[in-house]
Design a protein around this nucleic acid. Structure first.
Lengths: 339, 339
DNA sequence: CTGAAAGCGCTTACAG
DNA sequence: CTGAAAGCGCTTACAG
């Protein structure tokens, strides 16, 4: 490893001070009235020697790290990993890097992670708020570090966030089923206080009520996939009139499909399926499954737009941006018009 | 934000020197012969004040960052995001964090990323080597920073790596098709020099040759999904005798399935499908698709085991560990015995 | 057993 | 127009 070049080396070589070199490198030559000749000499040598500033020293001095912390339940979930990729791309364009982590439903771990982020002088945060971490994150926001929440928000909590229009999109999806002749529509969600899940349920309830139908709701006490499959199976078996079912999230839908495979084919073929969150599997399923697709690109765009303007100080720290984006309903074979 | 506590604050409060505090905090009290009484006072105050060392200053001083750089083509690919999650978990247990990035098939970007990693004083690297970056990474390895490659390796390049036994697993998969009565087995891969892809092809060729069958190989000039689908369609149409086809990777299989859907159903039902890389979609497909599953957990385990022992200096920097792991063949309905 | 002091590589207020 | 010097918060060789 060729020993790292530092500012002092450049300064010594050029017989000028580190101050001048630093100013030139940071594009403050004009502002600091440094002669064009000197500036050019510095820049040329920087290029020739391939000088790279030591970002650690820089961060220590300035208190900025050019790192963004990204916190979600599980980075391997398609929704999150796609957002991660897009955020990463956009962040790179602005010289930021992402430090990412999964909390894996472990609040102790999540708190540790936030501590580590803080400790690393992360400049900003992108967080899909895990249940139970509300107070912790609220405290973080109060410190005036830029924090953009996504996927979930907490009513009454002052924060920036970007979410999908959960109730509206589920309402429309339910209406779609009604329009296609389904009359006994079930809704499978989990037992939770996460606002986005409650909103999805609300959308369903609103549609069912407006149409004067009967609600059939299953709230799974989510422990693991296995018990979830069991609960769904029982639910479907005991609601023999069910002609359609909406799954409130990606992983619930997976469990639902697993449950269906174990059930009698004849029961199954009568039931329309609709999922919140679109992912490749649904498109390839037989029949392809109708799904509510969150606008991933737009979500990532909005997160970064808000975060960057806060990082650049364009938005007052205590002025919060809250964005709710419409979702798309991808209609497929699983919810065809009833004969 | 309560102003950050630093070592000096602790020292002043206790009327001792920063040196002593630093020694105690870093568990060197014994080694440095610090009295138990003093050590206790320090530890107590640290606990009471919730002191957290400034890792930036620490890194600047020690040259260690406790950060691992993770570089893959696309973090949103299931194989990579699962590895990422597991690596992240294991790294956390040892106080390391992951800085992750996707190169998105852009070598300029990849080089920049490596530069950024170096600049951030990353302690070690986990890399799925992108094509064209061999020289760059080889140079990195020469600097004696721990680098563990996975998924891909370069023959003749001195490095640590963890890979799946590509040729052996594809050989077995092909044999499985032969045993089930298939005689015209095609192999769809991409035009590339990536060793793991060449190995997969070799496994196929070996089996076909041993059985005295005819090879049917398609090497796609991969530009995007669309052109890939087109090439696969042409391939299937012009090889009318094909009764089975093996896709050499995740994304190729997806394109293959897309191509099949656009083809005549009757052509399709005659063809067995087998994919390298198992993912949920294959299990849910109708019929479920037989797949070679890479041992994700073991891969992650091995990567971290090698990396950690290098980071701890237990392995000489120039002694390379190379691990080849067996894959699993998940047999499903798509490759049933021929009638 | 403990401390004063240098130094990691940068930035910036101050002085000229 | 340019530079000397302090300081970000740590660690550690050296001295006692």
């Amino acid at each position: 490893m060729t020993t790292k070049i530092k500012i002092k080396d450049i300064a010594d070589e050029l017989k000028i001070s580190s101050t001048t070199v630093s100013f030139v490198i940071n594009g403050k030559a004009k502002e600091k009235n440094i002669s064009i000749a000197v500036a050019k000499k510095v820049l040329d040598l920087v290029a020739e020697w391939g000088y790279q500033p030591n970002s650690l020293a820089k961060s220590l001095r300035t208190g900025k790290s050019k790192i963004i912390g990204f916190l979600v339940d599980d980075i391997s979930e398609p929704f999150f990993s796609r957002i991660a990729r897009l955020i990463d791309e956009k962040a790179s364009e602005h010289g930021y890097k992402i430090l990412f982590s999964s909390t894996r439903n472990n609040n102790e771990k999540a708190k540790e992670l936030l501590q580590i982020f803080r400790d690393r002088h992360v400049d900003g945060y992108v967080i899909a708020l895990p249940e139970g971490l509300e107070a912790e994150v609220e405290r973080l926001i109060k410190t005036e570090v830029p924090v953009v929440l996504f996927d979930r928000y907490v009513p009454g909590m002052e924060s920036d966030y970007v979410v999908t229009n959960n109730d509206e999109s589920v309402f429309r999806a339910t209406q779609h089923l009604v329009e296609n002749g389904y009359k006994n529509i079930g809704f499978v969600t989990i037992e939770t206080e996460q606002q986005q899940m409650l909103d999805r349920l609300l959308g369903y309830e609103k549609s069912i009520e407006e149409n004067g139908f009967k609600k059939s709701i299953l709230k799974i006490e989510y422990k693991n996939s296995e018990n979830s499959i069991k609960e769904i199976t029982t639910f479907v078996k005991s609601n023999t009139k069910l002609d359609a079912v909406i799954f409130a999230a990606n992983y619930i839908c997976m469990d639902g499909l697993r449950a269906f495979r174990q059930l009698d084919i004849n029961t199954l073929n009568k039931i329309a399926v609709l999922s919140f969150d679109d992912f490749e599997l649904l498109e390839f399923y037989n029949p392809p499954i109708t799904a509510i697709a969150q606008p991933i690109e737009e979500i990532a765009d909005n997160i970064m737009k808000i975060l960057l303007s806060k990082l650049n100080g364009n938005i007052k720290a205590l002025e919060y941006k809250q964005v709710t984006l419409p979702a798309l309903l991808n209609v497929r074979g699983s919810t065809l018009k009833r004969a």
